[in-house]
């Protein structure tokens, strides 16, 4: 990445789009410090989290992360997956952890006996929703989503997008990297276009999609408009 600056206010939803290798996932992983940026600063709620004496594990409880490949804990069932952070990190009691976990799972539509299923017994869409519940249960200040639907079969994408839309509409602070333009148009407060390690353009969805200013943006959008249903008429 060659110099990126970004700001999200509480309750906002921002979506990053762009070609592969453009630095989008790297950016996300820098924010929850899975990758340590070589230079620059990151502030969460006014506090610098890239500082020297910051306890990373504590910071990460405030930042939720949803992975492209779900990364559910394979040896635990859905409920235990969501509970683990609550009991081991937040040190909640079994009872309250279970209650909160079940509520989070309910929010993403995983109910009944499904909560006792193991990741290998769940479909991709179900696994990703559990992943979202796991992040949500920690009650983070911001949620990062790294191409959450890219590893899903087409017919399973919808259920996850619906959960994400619901999340955005209920006031969560979200930063998502995704190719799902429809979702972005619907809920994003701002679209950020990244390519070759820099943000080349950003703006309100209507602006960016219909009247992109940079040629790079135009090129990218041109190659995916037919796929994602932004019709030719809209462009004019």
């Amino acid at each position: 990445m060659k110099g990126v600056s970004l700001k999200i206010d509480k309750g906002e939803t921002k979506v990053i789009i762009g070609p592969s290798g453009g630095g989008k996932s790297t950016l996300l992983r820098c924010i929850n410090l899975l990758i340590r940026p070589d230079s620059g600063q990151i502030f969460l709620d006014g506090e610098e989290i890239t500082g020297e004496h910051v306890k990373l594990s504590e910071v990460r409880t405030e930042i939720g992360f949803v992975f492209q490949h779900f990364n559910l804990f394979m040896h635990l069932n859905a409920l235990q997956n969501v509970k683990l952070g609550l009991t081991k990190v937040k040190k909640m009691s079994e009872r309250s952890a279970e209650a909160r976990a079940l509520a989070a799972l309910q929010d993403v539509g995983i109910t009944g006996d499904l909560v006792n299923h193991y990741p290998a017994q769940l479909s991709g869409g179900q696994q990703q929703r559990v992943g979202i519940a796991r992040a949500l249960a920690m009650e983070p200040k911001v949620i990062l989503l790294d191409e959450p639907t890219s590893a899903l079969d087409p017919e399973l994408i919808g259920e996850v997008l619906r959960v994400m839309e619901h999340l955005a509409e209920s006031g969560a602070t979200m930063l998502a990297v995704t190719h799902e333009i429809g979702f972005a148009r619907k809920v994003a407060d701002e679209i950020i276009f990244m390519a070759d390690g820099v943000v080349t353009e950003s703006g309100h969805p209507e602006e960016l999609f219909l009247k992109p200013k940079q040629s790079r943006t135009k090129k990218f959008l041109g190659s995916i408009t037919e796929l994602y249903g932004v019709s030719r008429e809209d462009e004019n």
Binding site: S57, I63, F67, H69, N71, F73, K88, V89, K90, M138
Partner: peptide, 19 residues
Amino acid sequence: GQMDAAISIGMTRAQALLN
């Protein structure tokens, strides 16, 4: 990815290893 997920919910490496 398992390690990544564990530290993303705020576990330390030691906790991730153990759990």
